Amino acid sequence: MDGTRTSLDIEEYSDTEVQKNQVLTLEEWQDKWVNGKTAFHQEQGHQLLKKHLDTFLKGKSGLRVFFPLCGKAVEMKWFADRGHSVVGVEISELGIQEFFTEQNLSYSEEPITEIPGTKVFKSSSGNISLYCCSIFDLPRTNIGKFDMIWDRGALVAINPGDRKCYADTMFSLLGKKFQYLLCVLSYDPTKHPGPPFYVPHAEIERLFGKICNIRCLEKVDAFEERHKSWGIDCLFEKLYLLTEK
Results as ranks from 00 to 15, higher is better:
Met1Asp: 07
Met1Gln: 15
Asp2Ser: 08
Gly3Thr: 14
Gly3His: 15
Thr4Trp: 13
Thr4Asp: 13
Thr4Asn: 14
Thr6Asp: 10
Ser7Leu: 08
Ser7Arg: 12
Ser7Glu: 14
Leu8Ile: 15
Asp9Glu: 09
Ile10Cys: 10
Ile10Ser: 09
Ile10Trp: 09
Ile10Asn: 07
Ile10Arg: 11
Glu12Pro: 02
Glu12Phe: 13
Tyr13Arg: 07
Tyr13Val: 11
Asp15Lys: 08
Asp15Gln: 15
Thr16Met: 14
Glu17Met: 12
Val18Ala: 11
Lys20Met: 14
Lys20Glu: 08
Lys20Cys: 13
Gln22Pro: 05
Val23Ala: 13
Val23Gly: 11
Leu24Glu: 07
Leu24Ala: 11
Leu24Gly: 05
Thr25Arg: 10
Leu26Lys: 04
Leu26Arg: 07
Glu27Phe: 08
Glu27Met: 06
Glu28Ala: 10
Glu28Val: 11
Trp29Val: 04
Gln30Cys: 13
Asp31Cys: 15
Asp31Val: 10
Asp31Met: 07
Asp31Leu: 06
Asp31Gly: 09
Lys32Gly: 08
Lys32Tyr: 12
Trp33Asn: 02
Trp33Ile: 05
Val34Leu: 07
Val34Asp: 10
Val34His: 09
Asn35Glu: 14
Gly36Thr: 12
Lys37Met: 14
Lys37Ala: 12
Thr38Asn: 08
Thr38Arg: 10
Ala39Pro: 10
Ala39Phe: 13
Ala39Asp: 05
Ala39Cys: 15
Phe40Gly: 06
Phe40Thr: 06
His41Trp: 13
Gln42Pro: 06
Gln42Val: 12
Glu43Met: 12
Glu43Val: 10
Gln44Glu: 13
His46Ser: 15
His46Gly: 06
Gln47Cys: 09
Gln47Asn: 10
Leu48Glu: 06
Leu48Phe: 02
Lys50His: 01
Lys50Val: 07
Lys50Leu: 01
Lys51Trp: 07
His52Glu: 13
Leu53Met: 14
Leu53Tyr: 08
Thr55Arg: 02
Phe56Ser: 08
Phe56Tyr: 13
Phe56Gly: 07
Leu57Ser: 13
Gly59Tyr: 13
Lys60Pro: 05
Lys60Val: 12
Lys60Leu: 09
Gly62Arg: 14
Gly62Cys: 06
Gly62Gln: 08
Arg64Val: 04
Arg64Lys: 14
Arg64His: 14
Val65Gly: 01
Val65Leu: 04
Phe66Asn: 01
Phe67Gln: 01
Pro68Gln: 00
Pro68Val: 01
Pro68Cys: 02
Leu69Gly: 04
Cys70Asn: 02
Cys70Phe: 02
Gly71Ser: 05
Gly71Val: 04
Gly71Leu: 03
Lys72Asn: 02
Lys72Arg: 06
Ala73Ile: 02
Ala73Cys: 12
Val74His: 07
Val74Glu: 06
Glu75Val: 05
Glu75Gln: 04
Met76Ala: 03
Met76Ser: 01
Lys77Glu: 03
Lys77Thr: 09
Trp78Asp: 08
Phe79Gln: 00
Phe79Ile: 08
Ala80Val: 11
Ala80Pro: 02
Ala80Tyr: 04
Asp81Cys: 05
Asp81Trp: 03
Arg82Ser: 11
Arg82Ala: 11
Gly83Met: 03
Gly83Ile: 01
His84Val: 07
Ser85His: 14
Ser85Val: 13
Ser85Pro: 04
Val87Trp: 04
Val87Thr: 12
Val87Cys: 10
Gly88Pro: 05
Gly88Val: 00
Gly88Ala: 04
Gly88Met: 01
Val89Trp: 04
Val89Leu: 05
Val89Glu: 00
Val89Cys: 13
Glu90Val: 07
Glu90Asn: 08
Ile91His: 06
Ile91Gln: 10
Ser92Val: 03
Glu93Phe: 05
Leu94Ser: 06
Leu94Arg: 13
Gln97Gly: 08
Gln97Met: 15
Gln97Glu: 02
Glu98Trp: 02
Phe100Asp: 02
Phe100Gly: 01
Gln103Thr: 06
Gln103Asp: 05
Asn104Thr: 03
Asn104Leu: 06
Asn104Pro: 00
Leu105Gly: 02
Leu105His: 03
Leu105Phe: 03
Leu105Cys: 10
Ser106Arg: 09
Ser106His: 08
Ser108Lys: 06
Pro111Trp: 06
Pro111Arg: 13
Pro111Glu: 13
Ile112Glu: 02
Ile112Gln: 04
Thr113Ile: 04
Glu114Lys: 09
Glu114Val: 05
Glu114Gly: 12
Ile115Lys: 14
Pro116Trp: 05
Pro116Ala: 06
Pro116Ser: 13
Thr118Pro: 09
Lys119Leu: 02
Lys119Pro: 01
Val120Asp: 01
Val120Cys: 08
Val120Ile: 06
Phe121Tyr: 12
Phe121Ser: 01
Lys122Gln: 10
Lys122Phe: 07
Lys122Arg: 11
Ser123Val: 03
Ser123Glu: 13
Ser123Ala: 05
Ser125Thr: 15
Ser125Met: 15
Asn127Val: 08
Asn127Ala: 06
Ile128His: 01
Ile128Arg: 01
Ser129Ile: 12
Ser129Cys: 04
Cys132Trp: 04
Cys132Tyr: 02
Cys133Ser: 06
Cys133Tyr: 00
Ile135Met: 11
Ile135Thr: 02
Ile135Pro: 03
Phe136Val: 04
Asp137Leu: 06
Pro139Trp: 11
Pro139Phe: 13
Arg140Ile: 15
Arg140Gln: 12
Thr141Arg: 08
Thr141Asp: 04
Asn142Thr: 12
Ile143Arg: 02
Lys145Trp: 04
Lys145Ile: 12
Lys145Glu: 15
Lys145Tyr: 14
Phe146Gln: 05
Met148Glu: 00
Asp151Arg: 00
Asp151Ser: 01
Gly153Gln: 03
Gly153Trp: 07
Ala154Phe: 01
Leu155His: 00
Leu155Ala: 01
Leu155Gln: 00
Leu155Arg: 01
Leu155Gly: 00
Val156Thr: 15
Val156Tyr: 05
Val156Met: 05
Ala157Lys: 04
Ala157Pro: 00
Ala157Thr: 03
Ile158Glu: 01
Asn159Gln: 02
Asn159Asp: 07
Gly161Tyr: 10
Gly161Pro: 14
Gly161Trp: 08
Asp162Gln: 10
Asp162Met: 11
Asp162Ile: 02
Lys164Gly: 12
Lys164Leu: 13
Cys165Ala: 07
Cys165Asp: 12
Tyr166Trp: 01
Tyr166Gly: 01
Ala167Phe: 05
Ala167Glu: 00
Asp168Phe: 07
Asp168Thr: 12
Thr169Asn: 02
Thr169Gln: 10
Met170Glu: 00
Met170Pro: 01
Met170Ala: 03
Met170Thr: 08
Phe171Met: 02
Phe171His: 15
Phe171Pro: 02
Leu173Gly: 01
Leu173Cys: 13
Leu173Trp: 08
Leu173Thr: 11
Leu174Pro: 00
Leu174Arg: 02
Leu174Cys: 02
Leu174Met: 08
Lys176Gly: 13
Lys176Ser: 09
Lys176Met: 08
Lys177Met: 06
Lys177Ala: 11
Lys177Thr: 12
Gln179Ser: 10
Tyr180Leu: 05
Tyr180Arg: 00
Tyr180Gly: 00
Leu181Val: 07
Leu182His: 00
Cys183Met: 13
Cys183His: 08
Cys183Val: 08
Val184Asn: 04
Val184Leu: 13
Leu185Trp: 08
Asp188Glu: 08
Asp188Leu: 04
Pro189Thr: 11
Pro189Ile: 05
Thr190Ile: 13
His192Pro: 02
Pro193Ile: 03
Pro193His: 14
Pro193Lys: 02
Pro193Gly: 10
Pro196Ser: 10
Phe197Lys: 10
Phe197Gly: 03
Tyr198Glu: 02
Tyr198Pro: 15
Tyr198Ile: 14
Val199Lys: 02
Val199Met: 03
Pro200Arg: 15
Pro200Ser: 13
His201Cys: 05
His201Leu: 14
His201Ser: 11
Ala202Tyr: 14
Glu203Pro: 02
Glu203Val: 11
Glu205Gly: 10
Glu205Arg: 11
Arg206Gly: 09
Leu207His: 00
Leu207Arg: 03
Phe208Gln: 01
Phe208Asp: 00
Gly209Tyr: 11
Gly209Ser: 05
Gly209Leu: 06
Lys210Trp: 09
Lys210Thr: 10
Lys210Tyr: 15
Ile211Gly: 13
Ile211Ser: 14
Ile211Gln: 15
Cys212Thr: 12
Cys212Gln: 09
Cys212Tyr: 14
Asn213Ala: 14
Asn213Gln: 10
Asn213Thr: 07
Ile214Arg: 01
Arg215Trp: 10
Arg215Gln: 13
Cys216Asp: 05
Glu218Gly: 04
Lys219Phe: 08
Asp221Arg: 08
Asp221Gly: 09
Ala222Phe: 02
Phe223Tyr: 08
Phe223Leu: 14
Phe223Ser: 14
Phe223Ala: 13
Glu224Lys: 11
Glu224Asn: 14
Glu224Ala: 15
Glu225Val: 13
Arg226Phe: 11
His227Arg: 09
His227Phe: 04
Lys228Gly: 09
Lys228Ser: 11
Trp230Pro: 04
Trp230Glu: 06
Gly231Ser: 10
Ile232Pro: 04
Asp233Pro: 06
Asp233Lys: 04
Asp233Ile: 09
Cys234Met: 15
Cys234Gly: 11
Cys234Gln: 14
Leu235Trp: 04
Phe236Trp: 13
Phe236Leu: 05
Glu237Cys: 05
Glu237His: 13
Glu237Gly: 03
Glu237Tyr: 03
Glu237Val: 06
Lys238Cys: 15
Leu239Arg: 05
Leu239Asp: 04
Tyr240Leu: 12
Thr243Glu: 07
Thr243Gly: 04
Thr243Ser: 13
Glu244Cys: 13
Glu244Thr: 11
Lys245Gly: 09
Lys245Thr: 09
Lys245Asp: 06
